[in-house]
């Protein structure tokens, strides 16, 4: 399949946040300011791409030949968790600049469903290695676009008169659903 089509689809028609509603916890809680949303987004792009790149060979080179594919749920979670820990230690030691922007967000996304979701989709849709990496990278970028758009809208909400019961997550969920409706307009442009 055309890599560009996959990339475009992950951004718009199959956005991981707004079409599949995955990765909602940070999407709701870290979208208060554009700066932190961007930091979180970059961390998601990074971790998604790296974990998909590692999980693909684990699935196709170890699980499939040994006919133990059913282990992939458990194993994907373990590799994601271990990898995030490892990446955190490496950035902390060698990349202090990256540590300041990504550092605090990395542990937050260890158990994020969007990260696991991307690895599982990659298996379900039978992507090749390159396709998987592009799909994961695109999904991360798509998620980042969604959370930055959300934080932009939320920064306007600071001055809005919101009913007491809807303040915080309530109004954010409503906005997310309206954004999802808007993204439905892209449906049908490409298919994956």
């Amino acid at each position: 399949m055309n890599l560009f089509v996959i990339f475009f689809a992950t951004l718009f028609t199959h956005n991981i946040a707004l079409t599949y509603f995955l990765g909602m916890c940070p999407f709701i809680s870290v979208s208060r300011s554009i700066k932190t949303a961007l930091g979180m987004g970059l961390a998601v792009v990074f971790v998604m791409t790296v974990t998909a790149a590692i999980n693909w060979p684990i699935y196709y080179k170890i699980l499939v030949p040994l006919e133990v594919e059913f282990l992939y749920y458990v194993l994907f979670i373990i590799t994601i968790a271990a990898l995030v820990q490892f990446v955190e230690m490496v950035t902390e030691r060698f990349l202090p600049v990256l540590q300041v922007t990504l550092g605090v967000f990395l542990p937050l996304i260890t158990v994020n469903c969007a990260i696991l979701g991307v690895s599982l989709f990659m298996v379900l849709r039978k992507y090749s290695y390159l396709e998987s990496v592009v799909f994961a990278f695109g999904s991360g970028v798509g998620w980042t676009i969604a959370i930055i758009a959300m934080s932009g809208i939320r920064s306007k909400l600071l001055f809005a008169d919101i009913p007491e019961a809807l303040k915080g997550p309530g109004i954010t969920m409503i906005i997310a659903s309206i954004m999802a409706l808007a993204f439905m307009g892209f449906a049908g442009m490409v298919g994956i």
Binding site: I58, I62, L63, L66, E67, V68, F70, L71, V74, L75, I78, T79
Partner: peptide, 10 residues
């Protein structure tokens, strides 16, 4: 096999 795979990867 599953046990071995799990244990060795972990």
């Amino acid at each position: 096999t599953p046990v071995l795979v799990m244990v060795s990867i972990a």
